[in-house]
Design a protein around this nucleic acid. Structure first.
Lengths: 206, 206
DNA sequence: GCGTAACGCTACGCGAGTGTAGCGAAAACT
DNA sequence: AGTTTTCGCTACACTCGCGTAGCGTTACGC
């Protein structure tokens, strides 16, 4: 299972390919993905077997095999179904944009469906190339929004010219992740705002 | 395997219990733990089976079962064997203490034996109580050193009175973790120093 | 309405890993 | 030197999940 090699199907399943408008297909597909996400959250990647998904979802095992080559492809599809980049808030000020995005990240990591999934994906990405690719793609999409916001802030003069947007990103998103996954503290909007304000303060005085 | 319940043996294996001075026991124990760590790094927790450890280490499967009840206990012992808290650098200044600790963290996450293990432990901690306990204990030991350093800095007046040490910790350690695991950038001493200086700057002006 | 496609179900062989038992050989303690 | 402990090995029964094949039934599309 873990030594499976990932074929071309994984490579080209970018968002994902419906390929069939038959409501029966879409129904079973949706049920399978939803159940897979449940199992991923509750028990992790390794325990999210086709067997287990079939049993809980009520969709026959053979039906699942008709739509996915194997466990890895199904899990990747499930991940892809929840990892959505945030919208650009564009409030007008860098501070409010960042607070908005950071609050969203904090919420996603605490209560959202992706809460328990992020670490599973990150861990899998350490070893399995296809998970690494998905993780990279997801991070890039999410970061693109944040980097845009920061770059806009620099252009407006809310951050000094020459500021490295990627560094600001790490300084802001990092503490949220860290508090959630290592310090095990609460990551609420107040904490998110505190982080943003503190980091912006660090750039105010050269 | 993943649904195993963890008995009392896990609970009381705090550092770990030699319980035997027989060199044969210690030899096989060491070989097994070393191999388990290799497999954990290369393939993750789920693939680190007793079977696989036995095959690679050359230690018979039955011998492993004589010393550990099952896979979970062995993996926990292996984790516990590498997670060591850093020493207090105590250079005299907060800045240098933090740079030292942060550089050490960056190195540990990039090149050390714990590099590929941290995420595996964090992910497992999301679902399995015994892994969560180990992760918490490890984080507490590591954080205790950092919090000491920060508190000392506050007492010396290098940070404003009333500063929350835990917040400073998240602000400094967070970006290191984030850059390593999400942004996928390089976490070298230069980056570590940049983070420390930037965060300290944020507290210089109230 | 009629043909087709997807469904659920059963069945089968297979591999991997688990956990236990018994045995002779070798190494360690005393 | 003699006893005890640990070791490696073989064997066994068992579970879980994989992946495929065939078949009757149901629900869709035209």
């Amino acid at each position: 299972m873990l030594s499976r090699r990932y074929g071309e199907r994984v490579a080209r399943q970018d968002p994902f390919i419906p390929r069939s408008t038959d409501p029966r297909v879409q129904r079973s597909r949706a049920a399978v993905i939803a159940t897979a996400l449940e199992l991923l959250t509750e028990r992790g990647i390794a325990a999210t077997t086709i067997e287990a998904v079939s049993e809980r979802s009520g969709v026959a095992r053979t039906t699942i095999y008709r739509q996915w080559p194997g466990q890895a492809e199904l899990v990747l599809d499930a991940f892809a179904a929840v990892l959505r980049p945030p919208a650009d808030p564009d409030t007008g000020t860098l501070r409010d944009d960042l607070v908005e995005l950071t609050t969203g990240l904090a919420r996603a990591l605490s209560t959202g469906p992706a809460a328990g999934l992020m670490l599973a994906l990150m861990d899998a990405a350490e070893r399995e190339p296809s998970y690494a690719a998905l993780h990279r793609r997801e991070a890039e999409l999410r970061h693109a929004v944040i980097l845009d916001v920061i770059t806009r802030g620099i252009r407006r003069g809310e951050l000094p010219a020459g500021t490295d947007p990627a560094e600001v990103l790490d300084l802001i998103a990092g503490p949220i992740f860290h508090r959630r996954t290592v310090s095990q503290g609460t990551v609420d909007p107040a904490f998110a705002a505190r982080v943003v304000d503190r980091v912006l303060l660090a750039y105010r005085h050269p």
